[in-house]
Simulated assay, not measured.
Amino acid sequence: MLIATERLVLRRFRPADAEVLAGYRSDPEVARYQSWDAPFSLLRAETAVANFMASDPDKAGWFQYAVEHADEKVLIGDVAVHLHDNLKQAELGFTVAAAYQKRGFAAEAVTAVIDRLFRVQGLHKVSGECDARNAASAGLMERLGFTREGHLRQQTWIKGEWTDDLIYGLLAEEWLLGRA
């Protein structure tokens, strides 16, 4: 376990998580604004989990937190962090299985990860990016105190169309002041 919250355990991925990961990433609604296509095969999930397990949250590169419901002991999503080479900035992304959406789990998980990034790892800035049509992700970042820093028109070619991206940023001083 890396982080515990009231309802969640954020931990490293395990081989047994591959089937659940494939399941929620295969949901077309979950995959709609993400970089992967549904269905997300079990083989692809097993490869992803192996890569997740090989990464380190304190080193530059991508790290994926497995988000587990503490009471149900089931994987309900993941939070990705791309730690920059300078170890002072990171980009994050998040995914929650459809059955666990709209219940505050994404906010709880992302809050815990951001808190670790600023308080434990001493980062200066965390950024996030989402498809401009993804009101739920944009709304979550705004509720957590992120500032919308940009709207990139027709920035990403994904799933057969050009999409706009929203860029968000959160500084350590803003986070720590808001949590004092």
Rank of each mutant, 00 (worst) to 15 (best):
T95N: 03
N86Q: 05
A70K: 10
D27N: 13
V79F: 07
E72M: 14
K102W: 09
V113M: 06
A70N: 08
A60R: 04
A98R: 14
R44D: 11
V49Y: 02
A50V: 00
A112N: 12
D58R: 13
G23A: 15
S55I: 00
A70V: 01
Q64H: 05
V79A: 11
M53E: 01
V113K: 04
E46M: 04
R32N: 00
A106H: 10
A70Q: 10
V110P: 07
A98Y: 02
L43S: 10
E68L: 09
D58Q: 14
K102T: 14
H82D: 08
A50I: 00
K59L: 15
Q101H: 07
D85W: 06
Q34I: 03
M53H: 01
Y100L: 10
K73F: 11
E72H: 14
R25H: 07
W62Q: 00
A50Y: 00
D27R: 04
D58P: 02
F40N: 05
R25E: 14
R103Y: 15
Y33D: 10
D56M: 05
A60S: 11
A60L: 05
A99T: 10
Q89V: 03
A112M: 11
E91F: 03
N86P: 07
D27W: 03
A98K: 13
E29I: 12
S35W: 06
A107W: 09
V74A: 15
R103L: 15
Y33F: 12
